Amino acid sequence: MHILYLHGFRSGPQSTKAQLMRAACAHRGVPFDCPQLPVSPGQAAQLAHHRATQYLPAELTIVGSSLGGYYATWLAELVGCRAVLLNPAVNPARDLANYVTDGRGPLAHWHTQEPLEFHSRYLDELRELTVAAPTRRGRYLLVAATGDEVLDWREMSGHYRGCRQIILQGSNHAIDEFESLIPELFDFIHEPH
């Protein structure tokens, strides 16, 4: 079993959930990979696809948080592996339109404070990765927080209708209680296909 973790927008391998997942994998002897994704969705998808194809689909689970959940859905459909989605973006081209930096100066990465530019052309790159609805719904586990202050849990739940879902009452976009959910995530990851 291998875990490929895809972080969210302006995030990275230093995020709390990525670090908790890294530690949980180390404790269980499960290989863990969490690359720093490029800001360009096209480049991020290319990098994630390259990493995912290093493993057999039956031995890979992609864990994606927020925008990483959007990428994880696209990639799981493409390679046929499992995905765990943590407050995933469903329509990021819409949601990130206000973050376009063209002529406005850069944003900053949350953890490193390095500047990043989010260009308008990236919205088209996001649209190219759209999955209208997941297939083989048993491959997906959705974790959605009703108190998510960034994304609408109802949109997530509707998009992943028919998939296994953990709906957290309250909580937030960061999923503060994430560490307590890890055993349940690994139960799903280790289930036979």
Rank of each mutant, 00 (worst) to 15 (best):
L141W: 03
S66E: 00
W74D: 06
A133I: 08
R137V: 13
W110A: 15
A108Y: 11
L151N: 02
W153M: 07
S180G: 08
P134V: 07
N91M: 15
M21T: 14
T112A: 08
V131L: 01
N98W: 09
D152I: 03
E191V: 05
E191N: 09
L151K: 01
G105N: 13
L142S: 03
F186Y: 14
A83Q: 06
N87H: 12
G80V: 07
R10N: 11
I167V: 15
P106W: 13
C34P: 04
I167R: 11
N98H: 14
V100G: 04
L107Y: 03
A23D: 12
W110P: 09
I182A: 12
N98G: 15
V150S: 04
R51G: 04
E191C: 06
H111E: 13
Q54P: 01
Q54C: 14
R51T: 05
L123A: 05
I167M: 08
E125V: 10
A132L: 14
T130M: 13
L85N: 01
D152F: 05
F9A: 03
F32I: 12
L168A: 07
S180Y: 11
V79Q: 04
E114R: 12
D33R: 13
L86D: 02
Q54G: 11
A58H: 11
L107T: 02
S40H: 02
T53R: 13
H119C: 15
L168Q: 05
Y71M: 06
L116N: 02
L85I: 10
Y71N: 00
E184V: 14
K17G: 05
Y99C: 14
L168K: 07
H2R: 15
P115E: 07
L126F: 05
D124A: 14
T101W: 02
G103D: 11
L123V: 04
D176N: 12
I62M: 05
Q14L: 14
T146C: 03
A174L: 10
M21D: 04
T16L: 13
Q14F: 06
H190S: 15
H159W: 04
P192L: 11
V84W: 01
Y140L: 04
L96M: 12
M21P: 02
W153Y: 14
E128C: 12
